[in-house]
């Protein structure tokens, strides 16, 4: 144990591994999306995809068991909330039917081509989640559809309830989806019905709480209002997300008297931690050329 040769060998091994790790970190940051390490990642993901798919299927009962414990604890409180929400939604449905009829007439009058609600011109591709990032710092999932199914980078991804993220890397049979709860995520969004716009950012470690930031202070935002993607487009930039995809509901408004912008908390509609199936909105065109200037 105290032999100088053993000590030297031990220190050399540690130094080599640390140097390799730091070297990889530096190279990874320095290279583009098509660099050696990114390519290596895509290759490894492609190679291990069948194994991950099998493991994901085999472990589903265990995941469900874990989920069942948590769900049972939450179910009681959630039940009351859901009853109220159902009442609220019934009323909204009636209002929405009326508004849709009105809107149809108005579209005919002014020649609008953009439909309200869910974005047109997209082809949803259903996919199954086969792997998830194990840490809270990088929120991403891997799905079992890839470029062979028409998926491209930057395409929006939705799950039951609403938007959950966008495709950030694609292989032949798999794709990586960076979730809206990832620290690097930012989505241009709009509050309905008053149209106040801002940027939805994550609160790391709290996937059921997003921040809608940079809202003009003059626009009053109230709790319970709906937040959707704004799909902002200007001469210079274009949002990667189509307009009108639901994101979540405003749960709290931070009173910030001295700030120039308002900030509100949004609870996402999609249960991002438990998502098993997603839909990728394809045929919106690859935005790789726009990525440098695009709004997230």
């Amino acid at each position: 144990m105290f032999d100088s040769k053993v000590i030297r060998r031990r220190r050399a091994a540690l130094a080599i591994f640390v140097a390799l790790s730091i070297g990889m970190l530096t190279a990874y940051f320095g290279e583009s999306g098509g660099g050696v390490f990114h390519t290596l990642q895509r290759g490894a993901q492609e190679a291990f995809a069948p194994l991950e798919t099998g493991a994901s299927r085999a472990l589903k009962p265990f995941r469900d068991l874990f989920g069942w414990f948590g769900d049972t604890l939450d179910a009681k409180g959630e039940n009351e909330d859901l009853r109220e929400e159902v009442e609220d939604l019934r009323m909204r449905l009636a209002e929405s039917d009326t508004a849709r009829r009105d809107a149809r007439e108005l579209r005919g009058l002014v020649g609008l081509t953009e439909a309200e609600g869910f974005p047109q011109g997209t082809e949803p591709v259903a996919a199954r989640v086969i792997a998830r990032s194990p840490t809270v710092w990088y929120s991403s999932v891997k799905i079992d559809k890839g470029s062979g199914d028409g998926l491209r980078e930057d395409q929006p991804v939705i799950a039951r309830g609403g938007l959950i993220g966008k495709v950030t890397s694609v292989t032949g049979g798999t794709a990586e989806v960076t979730l809206i709860t990832d620290a690097s995520s930012a989505v241009s969004a709009q509050v309905q019905p008053n149209g106040a716009s801002g940027i939805v950012r994550p609160l790391v470690g709290k996937p059921d709480d997003l921040l809608l930031d940079y809202i003009e202070k003059g626009r009053r935002v109230t709790e319970g209002t709906i937040v959707v993607t704004s799909g902002l487009t200007s001469s210079r930039v274009e949002s990667l997300f189509p307009r009108g995809v639901p994101i979540g509901r405003v749960t709290r408004v931070d009173p910030q008297e001295v700030e120039q912008f308002q900030r509100v908390h949004v609870q996402p509609f999609a249960d991002i931690r438990q998502v098993d199936y997603v839909q990728v909105l394809t045929e919106r065109g690859s935005a790789t050329e726009q990525a440098g200037v695009a709004l997230p």
């Binding site: 591994f17 530096t26 940051f29 490894a44 993901q45 991950e52 950030t168």
Partner: peptide
């Protein structure tokens, strides 16, 4: 060695920044 290998594999398969997990686990 195990820390480096497991970290490398984790970074490769999850698609996160390469080198972080291997550095910490080493």
């Amino acid at each position: 060695s195990m820390g480096f290998g497991v970290g490398l594999l984790l970074d490769l398969l999850v698609g996160q920044t390469m080198g972080i997990s291997s550095l910490v686990l080493t």
